[in-house]
Design a protein around this nucleic acid. Structure first.
Lengths: 240, 240
DNA sequence: TCAAAAGTGTTACTCTTACACCCATGT
DNA sequence: ACATGGGTGTAAGAGTAACACTTTTGA
């Protein structure tokens, strides 16, 4: 499921076996978007319009079939690039969905979630790709609404103990901008003073000597410390 | 991969399509085992001996092929029962492994991890199922050593913020027994006094009026509060 | 000069940790 | 009686949260 157009078939050259279980890969991509009148930035994600049945015409997560010659991570990156043109800065496996009735034919979807910085958002002229606010999604194809809910939960959960917020920011940023990311994800205001101390204490930030100014006292510009891991570990890098 | 004997085929009645990607389900099952001279209990898991190639003769995680008519969770339960006779009290999806070279034929394994209480351990007379200490595993088939490492990491991680330790205990237990579970998983001693207060504070325990006695002051017997969730949420029960 | 955000200081409160000490049982 | 673990008390330290206050810019 979850593919939109163009190419795909797990075994190229063969007709798809409707009696077999097929493996698809989809990705929930989050970015931050500043809304006009809103007091906070909101989480947005791209959806693609399905061209064929099932659920033709409905919005769905970008994805496609797993090719027999590629690993899961590679398939996520590839299908993402093909459907949306996006190459995320952060990509992590979310969950494997495989309920029998989630699609008319038997499909197991390995779902990933990803983060991209606002400047990575490619505003493709493709009418079949559109960005939606995470809190105002239409009814999606298959079980994709549920999947997005779970991905959002994971994002909100993980932002508390991990440094993934960095995946949503440009290379250089002020503490106010970093705080804005946290506030958007957690949906609540954070005390600027306490936030500063907490994030400074982690050693993940490197202060630059540059400042960014508005109609107020200039704010120091920071970078991320590349030596600090972006997220916590996955199954593929086992540390002891 | 990861199947050991008996039945299996994703599409029964059809010959397996060697050119297609197949979906397998495996499970890492943990239980606690008291060793003779050891100061702490250790984590043990059952492995099954592979009967056919690839990796014939080697030990592997219990599992089998996903049937087209069953969901992933059901497949995990079924293959587990078929290979080991175990029906775990706690079962959760761990990760989907799908590197191209993890098996001679293309196999995507949806791996689960499970906990069972010591009294649930069925000591099957089957010579092809054996329990191993998690810290003294042989070289396993496929990437199963890596998978177990990751499952152990998840267990140790999750025990800190979740109540999964309960999955390893019988219905009634003393605080010392519960503490032993934590100590075994975390591989360090815990202060009995502080442990008591922390666990009492969570409201997950219901004191009974029964006591268990040894050559010391009798210890109160507790039960779990069934109203408190065993673990944190999964993707299938979305709470707002 | 004023508003607004940057940045510092301080205090109360909660949670964690270490450890002293009494309690109740079997041997 | 005494060893052993059950169970309570307490105090130091770390981390969190709330908020007063000073600094530095643009308008």
């Amino acid at each position: 499921m979850t593919l939109t157009s163009t190419r795909n078939q797990s075994a190229p050259g063969l007709t798809p076996d409707a009696d077999a279980t097929r493996v698809a890969v989809s990705t929930v991509i989050f970015t931050l978007r500043r809304r006009e009148g809103a007091d906070r930035a909101s989480i947005a994600l791209p959806l693609v319009r399905r061209m064929r049945d099932p659920h033709a015409g409905q919005w769905a997560l970008p994805g496609g079939w797993l090719d027999i010659r590629e690993g899961l991570d590679a398939a996520a990156s590839r299908t993402l690039a093909e459907t949306t043109g996006i190459a995320p800065s952060y990509l992590e496996q979310l969950y494997a969905f495989g309920a029998v009735d989630r699609s008319p034919t038997r499909v197991v979807s390995i779902v990933y979630w990803a983060l991209i910085r606002p400047d990575e958002v490619v505003d493709s002229s493709d009418d079949n790709v559109e960005w939606f606010d995470a809190d105002a999604l239409p009814t999606l194809a298959f079980d994709h609404n549920q999947i997005v809910e779970y991905a959002l939960w994971r994002l909100r959960n993980k932002v508390g103990y991990s440094r993934i917020a960095h995946g949503l920011l440009a290379d250089e940023f002020t503490l106010a901008e970093l705080r804005e990311v946290y506030e958007s994800i957690l949906r609540r205001r954070l005390d600027p003073a306490n936030f500063r101390r907490q994030v400074e204490g982690t050693g993940t930030l490197i202060p630059t000597d540059r400042f960014r100014t508005g109609s107020h006292r200039p704010a120091r510009v920071y970078r991320f410390n590349p030596d600090v891991e972006l997220a916590d570990r996955g199954p593929l890098d086992v540390r002891h």
